[in-house]
Design a protein around this nucleic acid. Structure first.
Length: 575
RNA sequence: CGGGAUGUAGCGCAGCUUGGUAGCGCACCUGCAUGGGGUGCAGGUGGUCGGAGGUUCAAAUCCUCUCAUCCCGACCA
């Protein structure tokens, strides 16, 4: 490609409304332009990268035996009513009407459509297992789109859905997809980790996420220092402390704590550490038959934070989790938040594993402005229910018993689920089994955020001059920069010759034939992040040399014109 | 959806307090020079100041409403 015939939409200045580095660089390098909040145009340079990611994903999916198909973006409401998600899905589902006033939505995902399609097409267990995928635009009406294409409303996703006669077959395909994802992200050249994950509202049992590690990531991932254990913090189990509880050796006391509400205030006032205080959070329970939801107390150590996902999974606790109303708490418990504690509380009380291990601790006395000191389980209050309620923290023991936890930020770029029969049962997707009986299919679901990968690759690979593409997804492999070619015939001739040679070899080569100053061209090519660069100049040609520099190299090197092709092939791993 | 902020040329910004002919840098166009790190000089194109209403002789500037965008949080995966 010639620069003179290609839209190079670079900017020197950083747009004011871009926060993270990948968003800034994608705008500055001229890869994307915003159309509206969460909606982006992909310019020619950006689209080349997107297509490269797409190609790798497609090749590896095909290699795994999955079949590509394509489903519509617009989907009829009937299917979503059938699965129940027309009601369940929140504002993210963009609902629209056609000219006949019939309800449709823009697909945020395609479980309903694929399940409908497959229940009509597959009749026999002999056709299973089968895995179908598409690379298609998704639309989720995010409340707050941000970080450019990282969290856009419209985005490109590879989604795959597998169908099975039994769980064993599903397990097998799940493992195959896990391996396939490992290959994909390795080929993309990203620093990534597979992590155990919560399966969220899509439902189902087992689930892994694939995260690109980056400071700007929106997820916290817990890693073990000594094993391969990695889990989303939402999911990472906090194991019961092994050390025995300290003996109850101090006398229970009630003390006045006027206006001390938060754990920090109370701890400071009582000259204790937050670790020695227990906090009591009141949440709503399931409504059941009652008119008002019952209240449930969750007790944690003062220095720990509640994991809402864990809490709402407990039987009887409302899901999604709702904190109880302040007035309701006062009415039922006779004290305000800030003075609550498990002793004699009189409602269901679920205690975190670590909090259950505390002794001689402080907590609210269930009278305003009063706290207990030296409280001990069993002696002062029965310990009835112990659960894992808190977020894991750096320094905690790893749940697999090996090493300690460290926390890093990650960008979720892939997610694999076992859906089980959640959709197939609801939508009656069955095939005949070996006994000639209808059998509901097991399903799996496997997503990759294609456009998000582009942003995450930049988050991981950039410097003060711009993007540094992993070779596999660079828009062009090599840039030829002739200096003063509009005046020097030898430079022009050499540049054209090399350009033709490399093009004929099928290499993505970019010839910067613009009539611009050298510094201008260097800066542009570095901003865009092309991995390799050849400078062709009068100065070099006089000595029979060209100049090579890798995007990551500190120094350039002279290479003889005669060797140039071999050197380039070697650098591009095409020897 | 709650809290905060911002809308002036393609981009980055000043002007608003104290109302009086809309400015700067970059980019873009023309010419000349220059030709190894966003080059120099000269000349030029481009804005109903987000929108609507109001106050006023006069509104980018003051008032009201509205729309959009961004940040923090919640939500989602």
């Amino acid at each position: 490609m010639r620069a003179s015939r290609f839209l190079i939409a670079t900017h020197k200045e950083t747009p004011a409304d871009a926060e993270v580095i990948s968003h800034q660089l994608m705008l500055r390098a001229g890869l994307i332009r915003k159309l509206a909040s969460g909606l982006y145009n992909w310019l020619p340079m950006g689209l080349r990268v997107l297509r490269k990611v797409e190609t790798i994903v497609r090749e590896e999916m095909d290699r795994s035996g999955a079949q590509e198909l394509l489903m519509p973006v617009v989907q009829p409401a009937e299917l979503w009513n059938e699965s129940g998600r027309w009601q369940e899905y929140g504002g993210e589902l963009l609902r629209i009407k056609d000219r006949h006033e019939r309800d449709f939505c823009l697909g945020p995902t395609h479980e309903e459509v694929i399940t409908d399609l497959i229940r009509n097409e597959l009749k026999s267990y002999k056709q299973l297992p089968a895995n179908f995928y598409q690379i298609q635009t998704k639309f989720r009406d995010e409340r707050r789109p941000r970080f450019g294409v990282m969290r856009a409303r419209e985005f490109l996703m590879k989604d795959a859905y597998s169908f099975h006669i039994d769980q064993e077959s599903l397990d097998e395909t799940y493992r195959l997809m896990h391996d396939t994802y490992m290959r994909i992200f390795e080929r993309l050249g990203l620093d990534f980790r597979p992590v155990q994950a919560d399966s969220g509202s899509i439902g189902g049992s087992s689930s892994h996420e694939f995260h690109v590690l980056a400071e700007s990531g929106e997820d916290d991932i817990a890693f073990s220092t000594q094993s391969s254990y990695a889990a989303n913090i939402e999911m990472a189990e906090c194991i019961t402390p092994t050390a025995p509880r300290e003996p109850a050796n101090a006398e229970l006391k009630e003390v006045r704590t006027p206006d001390q509400k938060t754990i920090d205030e109370v701890a400071k006032f009582l000259a204790l550490t937050p670790q020695n205080c227990l906090k009591t959070l009141i949440v709503e329970g399931d409504l059941g038959e009652a008119e008002k939801p019952p209240l449930i107390a969750l007790v944690l150590r003062g220095d720990h934070s509640l994991n809402e996902i864990k809490a709402e999974k407990i039987d009887g606790v409302a899901s999604p989790l709702r904190m109880a109303d302040e007035a309701e708490i006062k009415a039922v418990l006779g004290a305000s938040t800030g003075s609550l504690g498990p002793v004699g509380l009189g409602i269901r009380c679920i205690v975190d594993r670590s909090a259950a291990q505390s002794s001689n601790f402080a907590c609210g006395a269930n009278k305003d402005d009063m706290h207990y000191l030296n409280v001990n389980w069993a002696r002062d209050e029965e310990l009835r229910e112990i659960e894992d309620l808190r977020n894991i923290e750096a320094g905690d023991p790893s749940p697999d018993g090996q090493g300690e936890i460290v926390i890093k930020r990650g960008i979720e770029v892939g997610h694999i689920f076992k859906l089980g029969t959640k959709y197939s049962e609801q939508m009656n997707a069955s095939v005949l089994n070996a006994n000639g009986k209808a059998s509901i299919m097991e399903m799996g679901c496997y997503g990759i955020g294609v456009s998000r990968i582009v942003a995450s690759a930049i988050e991981q690979n950039n410097d003060e001059n711009g993007i540094i593409w992993p070779s596999a997804i660079a828009p062009f492999q090599i840039a030829l920069i002739p200096l003063n070619m509009h005046k020097s015939e030898v430079v022009a001739e050499q540049a054209e010759t090399l350009y033709r040679t490399l093009s004929d070899l099928g290499i993505d080569v970019f010839l910067d034939d613009r009539n611009e100053r050298p510094g201008f061209k260097f800066a542009d090519m570095e901003l865009i992040g092309i991995p390799h660069r050849i400078v062709i100049s009068d100065r070099g040609l006089k000595n029979g040399t060209l100049e090579y520099k890798g995007r990551n190299d500190a120094e350039s090197q002279d290479i003889s014109v005669d060797d140039a092709l071999d050197v380039i092939k070697t650098k591009l791993n095409r020897a």
